[in-house]
């Protein structure tokens, strides 16, 4: 299939599929930020998709995502799919799920919130809705207006 040719096939790794167009770059930068090993990552942007119109697809070699990374991806791509590739085959396919609580992956947008002072707690949010994601700070009770801009 043509779509399979857009990006080089990988033997082992992870394919993050069904990313809203434009969000792939943000996810890429998050994954690069916590990947000192410098793994090979390939991003395809604005790929035509039967389901979505356009989508971004991100492929990372030799990496399986941590739950924390999946949490961040769920905020950026609530309809995303995570495919685990082993020996060039999709061996596992999971829809991302945003848990009921989002802990330590986004900061509160309220500068006067106690979580933005120097206290030994991680910012924590209650998920009010999943797609589009809406988060309410467990501490100051404000809804986070700019989720993407506040990802840690």
């Amino acid at each position: 299939m043509v779509k399979e040719l857009r990006v080089t096939p990988i033997r082992n790794g992870t394919v993050i599929d069904h990313i809203p167009p434009g969000m792939g770059l943000k996810i890429l930068s998050i994954l690069m930020h916590d990947d000192p090993a410098g793994r090979t990552m390939t991003l395809a942007m604005n790929v035509s998709s039967a389901r979505q119109g356009k989508k971004d697809v991100l492929k990372v070699e030799d990496l399986e995502l941590t739950p924390e990374q999946v949490g961040k991806i769920a905020l950026l791509a609530p309809e995303g799919t995570i495919n685990i590739i082993r020996d060039s085959n999709v061996v596992k396919k999971e829809k991302v799920v945003l848990p009921d609580r989002v802990v330590g992956i986004v900061r509160c947008g309220n500068p006067n919130c106690i979580t933005n002072q120097r206290e030994p707690v991680e910012p924590e949010f209650v998920v009010v809705s999943r797609s589009p994601p809406r988060l309410r700070c467990l501490y100051c009770e404000r809804e986070l207006e700019d989720i993407i801009g506040n990802i840690l």
Binding site: C108, N110, N112, C113, I114, T115, Q117, E119, V121, C137, L138, Y139, C140, E141, R142
Partner: peptide, 13 residues
């Protein structure tokens, strides 16, 4: 009583 929002919730923790 505290000047930061969420302080009491943190205190409770």
């Amino acid at each position: 009583r505290h000047y930061n929002e969420g302080a009491a919730r943190l205190a409770a923790r």
